[in-house]
Design a protein around this nucleic acid. Structure first.
Lengths: 91, 91
DNA sequence: CTCAAATGTCGCCACTCAGCGACTTTTGTA
DNA sequence: TACAAAAGTCGCTGAGTGGCGACATTTGAG
């Protein structure tokens, strides 16, 4: 399930919520957000706050993963991203 | 690269940008956002707008994927999520 | 060490999100 | 069909974002 924009995210969220037999109100409370915010999320708003989106997704039992749009094209290797240069852990 | 919170996203973004030898200013312009916004992104702000985050990620050549936090625990099968009920394609 | 580029900080301001309550519309179930 | 629950809309308001320019700090060559 690649997420390219807010609308695709919206569809996934709605599906996940319905699969778990939750109302928007229930999800809102569980995720600690307003009822209306869930509506906006499921409508594909682009201005939603990132943190709230992440919290809501986790409430629904899913997370986000970063991956190259096209590995062959970009040549980005996420497996090597944090391999050697990461030398400054948090104090 | 699972993204659980804004800070993890921040680290990935910074790494990707540096890998591509871009300055924050360059990335900001390429993604169509303000310089300062990139700084906030790379510092792990949670209140960033979702759409801007998505645009910036794509500018860096990566996208987001939704996946179960723990497939065994949640029992969510994303492969079946859009299997049969999805009956309204975009016009 | 010195200088320049990159990064980060600071006010300031226009803009609008997010939440709330009440209302309307849709859905679906008996 | 009719009713109840869920979903969506509408003002309204406080709060905070994001953009900008200028300045401070850090980084990295030379």
């Amino acid at each position: 399930m690649d997420i390219q924009n807010a609308k695709e995210l919206a569809a996934v969220v709605r599906k996940l919520r319905q699969d778990q037999r939750m109302t928007q109100a229930a999800l809102a409370q569980a995720a600690g957000v307003g009822r209306e915010w869930i509506i906006h999320l499921e409508k594909g708003r682009t201005t939603l706050e990132l943190g709230m989106v992440l919290r809501t997704l986790r409430t629904l039992g899913v997370g986000l993963r970063i991956e190259p749009v096209s590995a062959a094209t970009t040549g980005i290797d996420l497996n090597r991203l944090f391999e050697d240069t990461d030398s400054t852990p948090k104090p």
